[in-house]
Write a protein that binds this DNA or RNA. Structure first.
Length: 408
RNA sequence: CGGGGUGUGGCCCAGUUGGUCUAAGGCGUCUGGUUUGGGACCAGAAGAUCGAGAGUUCAAAUCUCUCCACCCCGACCA
């Protein structure tokens, strides 16, 4: 993409009214634009990152056997009354149409997916299966905060699984945990992410959160380094020990919740009557699990973790562009290289603007693409370009003839 | 929702014991020129109902009241 065409540009000054790092830098670099508290527009650079995160999530959900669907964001009141959550779900956005009917904006979708599943589950032969969606969720948070970490409107992947029995649910649940760690690995978060035991509700002893260590985190977790798991605050108050090894030597850390999975059991299949007939013809309730992960929050989390004093340092898998090509007044030579790189299938943001070198460098550091390729009189004199990784301070000269090979 | 803070051109802000504010400066933008390896420089220009409404006053960005928005701490977060 030509940067001269990109309609956003970097801002030199910190935005007022944002102290959260991810919000400050994402706004300054032109990834997002703030509309209201916890409400953001994703700009071209931000949309690319968000899409890449979603792609990773989607691939792993597909690998887990999930079938992608898209449920409505506008949900009739009836669905919420069936479970009683119309009254009890504080963060639900409720609204009334011109027809005087009441609706909620989807905050989670058990109330939609359960009656949906009921339409297609009759026999044990119809089970198990799992569906998921990646969709905008709405929660009327008392206090939106920390940029993308807690919004009133945010992107969420929610997967729901349906099973005949507990053993099947348990087995799938473990597969989901593994799938989640694959996602965090691909997003560069695995090292800092802990499977965290949380209160489970009525159908299992625990639910699980995935918590990524970060100073910006609003959760406190207690880590058992030996087992590489953690427990959250509700659990630690009940039993000051690691649920796996019983160790009492737990380390307190701040963390961001980047995923959350529950065994729902029959909590929703019962009110909605999601039943199947088993081999003996007996009617039974299906068991459910649900598995959430928020791509927009992940984006904020990655920024919180991967940055330096100059800006963002995107992991290669989700950078808006792999290469940031900077022309220092050598647009002619640079344009050819831009086309060559693109022809080789590489994602390139090409700064073809008529600006000083310093300004281009500063913007490139802020935006944070993994590789910077510089073309100047100096490099062209040597038939070369200079390549510098965002993570290193010094670049290296690479012959133009070897450039494509360098990125293979 | 409780407590605290802030609202002034697109952005960051000065000004707030009422009067010379006909609102300053920086960034950005536009015009012309000089520049070009770390946010360059010179000259000129455009751009503001001072968050909104009501009130006090000869006079309000400045005082009073109401409301709104945003930020922070806390509570909350299927």
């Amino acid at each position: 993409m030509l940067q001269s065409v990109l309609f956003t540009k970097v801002i030199k000054e910190m935005p007022k009214d944002e102290t959260s790092y991810n919000a400050q830098v994402l706004i300054r670099a032109g990834f997002i634009d703030k509309v209201g508290a916890g409400i953001y527009t994703y700009l071209p650079l931000g949309k690319r990152v968000l899409d890449k995160i979603c792609d990773v999530v989607r691939e792993e959900m597909n690998a887990l056997g999930g079938q992608e669907i898209l449920m409505p964001a506008l949900v009739p009141k009836d669905n919420w009354q069936t479970t009683g959550r119309w009254e009890t779900f504080d963060a639900l956005f409720r609204l009334t149409g011109n027809d005087l009917k009441e609706y909620a904006l989807g905050a989670t979708h058990e109330e939609i997916v359960s009656p949906l599943a009921k339409n297609f589950i009759f026999s044990y032969k119809d089970l198990p299966f799992a569906v998921y969606q990646i969709q905008t969720k709405f929660r009327n948070e008392k206090r939106a905060k920390a940029g993308l970490l807690r919004g009133r409107e945010f992107l969420m992947k929610d997967l729901y699984s349906f099973h005949t029995d507990q053993a099947d649910l348990d087995a799938y649940y473990d597969l989901a945990i593994a799938a989640y760690f694959k996602i965090y690995e691909r997003l560069g978060l695995k090292e800092k992410t802990y499977l965290t035991y949380a209160a489970g509700g009525s159908f299992s002893k625990y639910s699980h959160e995935f918590q990524t260590l970060a100073e910006a985190g609003e959760d406190l977790i207690y880590i058992c380094e030996k087992c590489r798991v953690a427990v959250n605050r509700e659990i630690i108050n009940e039993q000051n020990t690691c649920p796996l090894c019983g160790d009492k030597d737990l380390k307190e850390q701040k963390a961001i919740e980047v995923g959350n999975i529950f065994k729902l059991g029959t909590k929703f299949s019962e009110p909605f009557g999601v039943k199947y007939k088993d081999q003996s013809g007996e009617e039974k309730l299906a068991l459910m699990g649900c598995y959430g992960i928020g791509p927009s929050r992940i984006m904020g989390t990655i920024v919180e973790i991967y940055h330096d004093d100059k800006g963002i340092i995107w992991p290669e898998n989700i950078a808006p562009f792999k290469i940031h090509l900077l022309s220092l007044n050598e647009n002619e030579g640079a344009l050819k290289i831009y086309h060559d790189l693109r022809a080789a299938g590489l994602e390139v943001l090409y700064d073809d603007r008529d600006l000083s070198a310093g300004e281009k460098f500063a913007a490139a550091d802020l935006i944070g693409c993994p590789y910077r390729v510089i073309i100047s009189k100096k490099t062209l004199a040597a038939n070369s370009v200079e390549i510098k990784k965002r993570t290193t301070s010094d670049g290296e000269m690479v012959a133009i003839s070897d450039l494509i090979e360098f990125f293979k």
